[in-house]
Simulated assay, not measured.
Amino acid sequence: MLIKISQCCKPVPGDEVIGFITTGVGISVHKATCPSLLATDPIRWVEVNWSGDIQGRHRTELFLRAEDRKNLLADISSLISSDDADVVEFSSRTTAENIAEFRVVLEITDRDHLQKLLVHLQQMPDMIEVRRR
């Protein structure tokens, strides 16, 4: 049976997950708290677990808000790199209130790797918000 990782919530090893039986596509794996999953019929849910030896890189998406300043982007990029995560997608904007907002899609190894990165990002000077999407 085909199993795919859902792109709406991008679960990573260590997340609590639930499978959703799709029509003709197999099982889509979602975080247990995924709004898209929670809006579906629970009769189509199936118990799934991460296998014990998950290796490789997994995508996750973060939202960051910080007071805009010189070298902010370079500092964020350097921190992500030093925590051994890879940036796959990146977009940013600055609000009228001089707040920089970033959407970052990263490749990480597992939930522990992600948690370490989140803590380091939250400790950055001028960082207002760091959250997983």
Rank of each mutant, 00 (worst) to 15 (best):
A100S: 02
S6V: 12
E107M: 02
R59C: 14
D110N: 05
F20Q: 09
I3E: 14
G14S: 07
E47Q: 07
P11Y: 06
Q123I: 09
L121M: 10
R133Y: 13
T33S: 08
W45E: 01
V105F: 00
R93Y: 06
L118W: 04
W45C: 00
T33W: 08
S28D: 06
E97V: 02
E101R: 01
P42H: 01
K70E: 09
E97F: 03
I99R: 06
A100D: 01
P42T: 04
D41W: 02
P13F: 10
P35M: 01
D110M: 05
R131V: 14
V87T: 06
E89N: 13
S81V: 12
V104L: 03
I5H: 11
D41L: 08
S82T: 13
I43R: 13
R131T: 12
M127T: 11
L2M: 10
N98P: 05
R132C: 02
G24N: 09
S91M: 05
A96K: 10
P42S: 02
E47R: 07
I43H: 13
V105G: 00
C9R: 06
R69A: 05
M124C: 03
L106F: 00
T60K: 14
E107L: 00
H120Q: 15
E67C: 15
V12F: 07
N71L: 15
F102S: 03
V29I: 10
D110I: 07
K4R: 15
V88D: 11
A96T: 04
F63H: 13
I5M: 08
F20E: 04
W50N: 01
G56R: 09
W45L: 00
L38Y: 04
R57I: 13
F20H: 06
R69D: 07
K4Y: 12
Q55Y: 06
R65Y: 10
S51H: 10
D41C: 08
G14A: 05
T22M: 08
G26H: 06
E67Q: 15
A32Q: 03
A100K: 01
H30Y: 06
S92M: 13
S91K: 08
R69N: 05
D126V: 14
R131M: 12
R69V: 09
Q7I: 15
